[in-house]
Amino acid sequence: MQRRRLAYSPPSLRARPVEALTPLAPRPVRRVLFRQRWRDLVFLHWPADPFEVARLLPAGTVPDLYQGRTYVGLVFFRMDDLAFGRTPALPYLGSFGEVNVRLYSRDSSGRRGVVFRSLDCDRLLPVLTARGAFGLPYRWSRISGQWFDNRLLYSTNRRRGARAGARVWLDVEDEPVAAGPLEEFLTQRWGLHERFLGRTYYLPNTHPAWSFRKCTLLDWEDDLVAAAGLSKPQGEPVSVLYAPGLPVRFGTPVPLPASGMPLD
């Protein structure tokens, strides 16, 4: 007998209305905890099973849905000019490659966010700092990013444990391209959700509006999504984006109420 697939309906969080998708942050970051610049970002996205995703999200959050579906993202980029507060950017340690696997969440205050299932980084000290201070699932990896004329190649392999890795090969043009409704849902995110020391928090961020360029996916390989506890992506990504980059500021963590009720 064929098993019927049920539609996913997120559990009630006794929530406020979900915030609108906006090209700029809907809330100011009053106190900057740290700053950084993201460069040469490549976003690959696939549909994900919302029942599977729901089990992987921190308490107090549910999958954020676009037209009844949720997604898993594999994102490659270069981080530069990492700095804390108003201090100057860190030399050497403040620049590194990163590859992350991310899901999409919302909380009882209606805030949309990102949940990172893994963050691969090629500097050990930022890995240890992010894990120890914020509970983020950073992994020490080898990451390379190279341009060959207008073609960009990223690759990563973990240094320890299971030898999971990923690779993307992209042709990038100078022509700007507008984000569609799905891409707005995937990229207009103004914070992350994480659980640390028994409490879920929201870490807000702000940055200029995204700009994207026309690109063509030439090839890709991935073991990171499955290593992050999700089903291995089937088929080509449904969304491929390239962004030159932008400066980003992060605020201080906001704890979610233990009861799941909205914050005042």
Rank of each mutant, 00 (worst) to 15 (best):
L6Q: 15
P10K: 09
P11E: 15
R14V: 11
R14K: 14
R16W: 06
R16E: 05
V18Y: 02
L24D: 13
V29R: 13
L33S: 11
Q36N: 10
R39C: 14
R39D: 15
D40Y: 01
P47T: 10
P50E: 02
P50V: 07
A54V: 02
Q67F: 08
R69K: 14
T70W: 01
V75W: 01
F76Y: 09
M79A: 14
T87P: 00
A89S: 15
F96T: 02
E98T: 00
R102A: 07
L103T: 08
V114S: 10
V114Q: 07
T129V: 15
F134G: 01
P137E: 14
W140K: 11
S141H: 05
I143T: 00
R151L: 04
Y154G: 00
R163E: 09
V168R: 01
L170A: 03
E173I: 01
D174A: 13
E175Y: 05
P176K: 07
L186Q: 05
L186I: 11
L186K: 08
G191Q: 09
G191K: 10
H193Q: 06
F196I: 05
L197V: 08
S211H: 13
W220P: 00
D222F: 00
A227K: 08
G229W: 08
Q234D: 12
G245F: 11
P247C: 09
R249T: 11
P253I: 06
V254H: 08
P257W: 07
S259H: 06
S259T: 13
M261I: 03
L263A: 15
D264Q: 12
